[in-house]
């Protein structure tokens, strides 16, 4: 007797919970949050394509679908860390197959060599190059993301990627940097334990 009652009791309980769950599943469905936007906001938007995707947004979509988070050299370690936090995965070192984290650069056109072919204008993902056919081109420095996509198309090789010049207000408090500029100065090494 107890056997049957045990089975019935559990069966009924299960039925009730099943009904409740079935009800809840329909009633309380939530739309998933736009994770792609959140990822995209973290990426540096250089649109350089080093990750193997045409632009930051496509890479964000790829990450949302489970791609690795360590494919963005311009973002470097900081971006990987933020992505790891967002995605709830472990931060990995940058995948060197995609390139190394390098200093920020800006494209500069050696204007006297430019022949006005507009190839770089077409290559620039953020429209940061001004110019017209057979007119000299120039880079709007503060719009340039340093992606260097314009360098290769240039038939006369007149585009250089130059490191951003430090200004007193963007200066990074690196005593080693001072020495580069003033070779005669000597830093008392700040022996920091990293």
């Amino acid at each position: 007797m107890s056997i049957v009652s045990a089975i019935i009791a559990l069966g009924v309980l299960a039925l009730i919970f099943g009904l409740v769950l079935g009800f809840a599943a329909v009633k309380f469905r939530v739309e998933s949050d736009p994770i792609v936007d959140q990822i995209d906001a973290i990426l540096p938007q250089t649109q350089c394509g080093q990750c193997g995707y045409p632009g930051c947004r496509p890479y964000a979509e790829a990450i949302a679908n489970g791609d690795e988070i360590n494919k963005c050299p311009p973002g470097g370690e900081a971006t990987i860390k933020e992505l790891a936090d967002l995605m709830g995965v472990e931060a990995k070192p940058l995948d060197s197959a995609h390139g190394e984290e390098a200093v920020k650069t800006v494209a500069v056109i050696r204007e006297d060599e430019c022949i006005g072919c507009t190839k770089c204008i077409q290559a620039c993902p953020v429209d940061a190059i001004l110019g017209a056919a057979k007119q000299m081109h120039t880079v709007i420095a503060h719009e340039c993301t340093g992606c260097d996509l314009c360098v290769e198309p240039c038939p006369v090789d007149c585009i250089d990627m130059v490191a951003e010049r430090p200004r007193p207000e963007t200066w990074q408090w690196d005593l080693g940097q001072i020495q580069q500029r003033h070779p005669e100065a000597q830093a008392i090494p700040v022996k920091m334990v990293e």
Binding site: W173, L175, I178, E184, A185, Q186, A187, I188, V190
Partner: peptide, 8 residues
């Protein structure tokens, strides 16, 4: 003369 630089 080479000057020494350090952080305050």
């Amino acid at each position: 003369m080479s000057f020494f630089i350090a952080s305050s």
